[in-house]
Design a protein around this nucleic acid. Structure first.
Lengths: 211, 211
DNA sequence: CGTTCCCTTGATGGGCTTCAAGACTCGTGG
DNA sequence: CCACGAGTCTTGAAGCCCATCAAGGGAACG
């Protein structure tokens, strides 16, 4: 009933429209849900980090293409038994509802980012989000000088932010030039002052409760 | 336990952060959830139509400002009794989960719209969405020549689409000039060919099941 | 008949995309 | 060992789409 699956960076987990008879939880690594227009324009519509849930109970086929953006480890359950589990165990169903509502809130913040933020603010916002998610795993709140893992290509960042990869690259360079961030290789960012990064992100909310 | 509340177009239902001890279902009219950056930039992050659910069980205060975009009638339940209902009645809880998952899918389509579509495609997409929602209420699928109610100001449309109200106005004029739409007053649109409008919206999906 | 709200239209400029070329990194094979 | 190539990223130049600033039209209301 429960089993693990491993994917390398860049591999596709499922294609939109394909049959999908499992649900899963991310153990390690990162995955993106993406949607496309006919002419190929691509937008990421979900970013899955450790502890996130993948799949929809009661649905036969995948609504979105899921791609591993870094090496990825999934803990999978066959869908039918999982659906039974939901019916028999209201506590689990209730927990799933809560996770879904949290995800809905996160996606709504994402709408604000895509609709109203500048390229620079978008980049800063993404780094803030990743820093907060990383810190939340160890029940902490980011502050001062911190390091952020960035297991995304420039292209994946662009698809998340609704930009081109060139613009992402330019804005990363600009933030570096101005000392807001430092780069250790392409996929690791040092943030000298997390507070300053939050200022660059446009919104001043403190990130809410640790939950 | 159950009561009705009425709001006029433009009135605020709740302010973000305010205490909210009811949940509600939209009976008639339309409401928008909006989020703001400190400098005033506004993005709509939810659009509630008849049959949609408002509020989050288990949460004390509103996360977003809710505004009636047209005259609005809500069917409200006090939050505490409603939460008890969810615990005692798994069928209702399960239904709420399904509605939340549907909303999540809708918001993900919205991400694609904000991140990757042109102003013209955004306008067309909004009209397609409203036409489909309206048609779904009577279990039909829009096609051919149809009318679409547009109970939104140009500014509310702009906040939904991540544009300025001037751009919305210009693109509406352009679509009209080219015969894709006709206007009956400012808040009612005639679509000579729904299929043509879908082509203008950028994605060619058929709108999925009627559910 | 003036005020207010909403909408339309014009002119201008800027932020991001597009197109293009080159740099860096890493793994492979000569 | 080093040359080569593929994938990823950076940087430059040009142009377009949409935002911004500005003015005015139209309808509803007192």
């Amino acid at each position: 009933m429960k089993f693990y699956r491993r994917f390398e960076a860049g591999q596709v987990v499922v294609w939109a429209g394909d049959r999908m008879d499992f649900v899963a939880s991310v153990v390690a690594g990162m995955a993106g849900l993406t949607q496309q227009l006919e002419d190929g324009r691509t937008q990421m519509v979900g970013l899955l980090l450790p502890s996130d849930f993948l799949g929809r109970p009661g649905r036969e086929s995948a609504a979105y293409t899921v791609t591993a953006t870094s090496d990825l480890l999934l803990c999978c359950f066959r869908r039918k038994p999982f659906e039974r589990l939901l019916i028999d165990n209201p506590r689990i169903a209730s927990r799933l509802l809560e996770m879904t509502l949290d995800e809905l809130d996160a996606v709504r913040d994402w709408l604000l980012l895509l609709g109203r933020k500048s390229a620079r603010e978008k980049i800063a916002s993404l780094l803030v989000i990743l820093a907060r998610r990383e810190a939340a795993l160890i029940k902490r709140r980011p502050e001062g000088r911190i390091a952020v893992e960035l297991p995304l290509t420039r292209e994946a960042m662009a698809d998340y932010l609704g930009l081109t990869l060139e613009t992402v690259s330019r804005q990363m360079s600009a933030l570096k030039r101005e000392g807001v961030i430092e780069l250790e290789g392409k996929r690791r960012v040092i943030v000298p002052s997390f507070q300053d990064l939050v200022l660059e992100s446009g919104d001043d909310s403190d990130g809410g409760p640790l939950s």
